[in-house]
Simulated assay, not measured.
Amino acid sequence: MPRVQLPAVTPKRKAWNKGRIIGQKRPLFPKQVWAIRARLELASYPRDLTLFNVAIDSKLRGCDLVKLTVTDLVKGDRVRERVLVIQSKTKKPVQFELTENTRDSVLLWVKSPEMFACQFMFPSRFHDRPHISTRQYGRLVRDWVTSIGLEPSAYGTHSLRRTKAAEIYRKTGNLRAVQLLLGHTKVDSTVRYLGVELEDALSIAEGIDI
């Protein structure tokens, strides 16, 4: 009886994203921001508190946030209220504001013994790196959101970049302002980034009478 050659069966690989939440990471709500901030203050983590506050205010990508220098944020013995940096991705300048709460944490951090003779705002503890890496920043973000009971896979470094921008858009509906604050070259990018839906746009339009 002739032998029947059966087709080879390739074992199915587990999908890399099985069980994971993918897509855009959620922004934090104001109460979640304050919950994380309070935990960092109580734990006496001045570096992490400063990093968190600056991340929320600056709306910077992680690659630009970790490279901030002391002179970017501090002039003399005062913390700047407004800061201008060149974005790594677009090579274009973007400005951001530092609120009073953030300025206080920046000043305390730069005056701490750990920051003696440091060039970067968030120096690495490894001698071969001048500042923390984006990967380390990502791990910190996961720790922060987990500490207040959030699902870490739903949040990431872009959550902090989107948080204040999303709140500004929610309160004003001004996409152009958010576009400038995020440093986007096209407003279409801002629409996609914020996840603006037609229903959102119609709700804003309904509130405007001319």
Rank of each mutant, 00 (worst) to 15 (best):
P7S: 07
A8V: 05
V9K: 04
T10V: 12
W16H: 04
W16Q: 03
K18I: 05
K18Y: 05
G19L: 02
I22R: 08
I22T: 15
G23P: 04
Q24P: 15
K25T: 13
R26W: 00
L28H: 07
F29P: 00
K31H: 11
K31C: 02
V33W: 03
I36M: 04
I36V: 15
L42E: 03
T50E: 08
A55F: 13
S58K: 10
S58R: 11
G62K: 11
V66N: 07
K67H: 09
L68G: 14
L68N: 14
L68F: 14
T69N: 08
T71Q: 14
R78Y: 08
E81L: 07
R82L: 00
V83M: 09
I86M: 14
E97G: 01
L98P: 13
T99S: 11
R103L: 06
V106N: 03
L107S: 12
L107Q: 13
L108W: 00
A117W: 03
C118V: 10
M121N: 12
M121W: 08
M121D: 11
S124Y: 08
R129T: 05
H131V: 07
T134L: 00
R135E: 12
Q136I: 05
R139V: 07
L140G: 12
L140A: 14
V141C: 14
W144Y: 13
W144G: 06
W144K: 07
W144E: 08
V145W: 01
V145C: 07
T146D: 09
S147F: 00
G149W: 02
L150H: 09
L150V: 10
L150Q: 10
L160V: 08
E167S: 03
I168W: 07
R170S: 10
T172K: 00
T172P: 05
T172C: 02
N174I: 02
V178Y: 09
G183Y: 11
H184G: 13
V187M: 09
S189Q: 13
R192S: 10
L194E: 10
V196N: 06
D200G: 04
D200F: 00
S203V: 00
E206H: 14
D209M: 01
I210D: 11
